Computed example of a mutant assay.
Amino acid sequence: MRSYQRLAYVSLAALTVGLGGCQGYVKKADFDSAISELRANQQKQQQEIDNLTQQMQQRFAQYDAKIAQLNGRIQVDSVSHFAFNDATLRDQDKPMLDDFAKIMSKNYPQAVVTVEGFADNAGSSAYNVRLGRERANAVRDYLVKTGGMSADQVRTVSYGKALNRQVAKGKSGDEGEPNRRVTLVVDFAGTQAQAQAAPQGQG
């Protein structure tokens, strides 16, 4: 179940209790109104996610990035890759991050983004968790310091060399380069800033 759907159901349950109050029941009109409002909010959030996904697909067509919706979140995969045993952000990855930060900071200032860090299969699990975190932090710092995103918007997590998240299963060295990466996940898009939304064909 999508995250915003779960939130809607939890909100509905709380609203049902609140509407019931001392009477011990909910009026049908109040219940129907609450359902309609929750459905409208759910549809609005999905529309924002669809709009943001479309913007990213158009903007990032020139980059080697895979964009997908997953459980109400937008995942931008294969964003940045790193040298073996290194967490230095490469210059060739910065233009894509610049575009990402520009879209988010100008059009989706309420968005919450998680930078996921990964490593290849060499080394211990504990070491690779630290290395993945350093890579995620390097991208987060770039998005905040250079891209202009708010530090409150961007968080990090490391999956190290978790096999179920590796692109090249069990590979390291040159063959494992696809595993040494970060992924950007938009956990919450928020509402698009209308003042910043340019008409089609402009900007």
Rank of each mutant, 00 (worst) to 15 (best):
S78A: 06
Q57C: 05
Q43C: 05
E134N: 13
A65P: 02
F31G: 07
F82N: 11
E48S: 14
R180E: 08
A138K: 08
E175I: 02
R2F: 08
A68F: 00
N128Q: 14
V139L: 11
K102S: 11
S105M: 12
S158E: 05
S125L: 02
A119L: 06
E116Y: 10
R73Y: 04
Q42V: 04
A138E: 04
Q62F: 03
V157A: 08
Q200N: 14
N179T: 01
N41M: 12
T183Y: 05
L52Q: 02
A138T: 06
L97R: 03
F31P: 08
A126D: 11
Q42G: 12
K106S: 15
N85W: 03
S78P: 00
S3F: 07
L12M: 09
E48P: 06
Q200L: 15
N164D: 15
L184P: 02
Y25K: 09
A168C: 04
A193N: 15
A34M: 03
S150V: 15
D91P: 08
N137R: 06
Q23V: 09
A151C: 14
K106R: 14
E116V: 01
N164F: 10
R140Y: 07
Q92M: 09
A87I: 04
K145I: 09
A162Y: 08
V167K: 11
V17I: 15
R130L: 07
G190T: 14
G203H: 00
A136G: 06
Q42S: 13
G24H: 12
Q54H: 13
Y4Q: 04
Y159C: 03
V115N: 03
S172Y: 09
V79R: 04
A87Y: 10
P95N: 06
G190W: 13
R2L: 12
Q5K: 14
A136M: 04
V182Q: 00
D32W: 00
N137G: 02
A101V: 11
P178M: 05
V10R: 03
M1G: 12
M1E: 11
I35E: 02
A83P: 03
Y142Q: 02
Y127R: 05
V182D: 10
M96Q: 15
S158Q: 06
G147H: 11
N121K: 10
M149I: 08
K161T: 04
L70P: 00
S80P: 07
V10L: 03
Y108E: 03
Y9F: 09
T114L: 13
A151E: 15
G132D: 08
P95W: 14
N137W: 01
T191R: 15
V154Q: 05
Q62A: 10
I49D: 02
L89F: 11
Q62P: 01
D98F: 09
Q62E: 12
T146F: 10
G147E: 13
R180L: 08
N107I: 05
Q192R: 14
Q166M: 14
V76Q: 01
I103K: 01
L12C: 07
G147D: 13
A198I: 02
Q55A: 07
Q202R: 07
L38R: 10
R180F: 01
Q92H: 12
A14S: 08
M56E: 05
Q5S: 13
L89E: 03
G132A: 07
P199F: 06
F84Q: 12
V10P: 00
S11T: 12
C22Q: 15
Q43A: 13
M56T: 01
L38K: 02
T146S: 14
V79Q: 04
M56N: 01
D32V: 09
Q202S: 09
S105W: 07
R59Y: 05
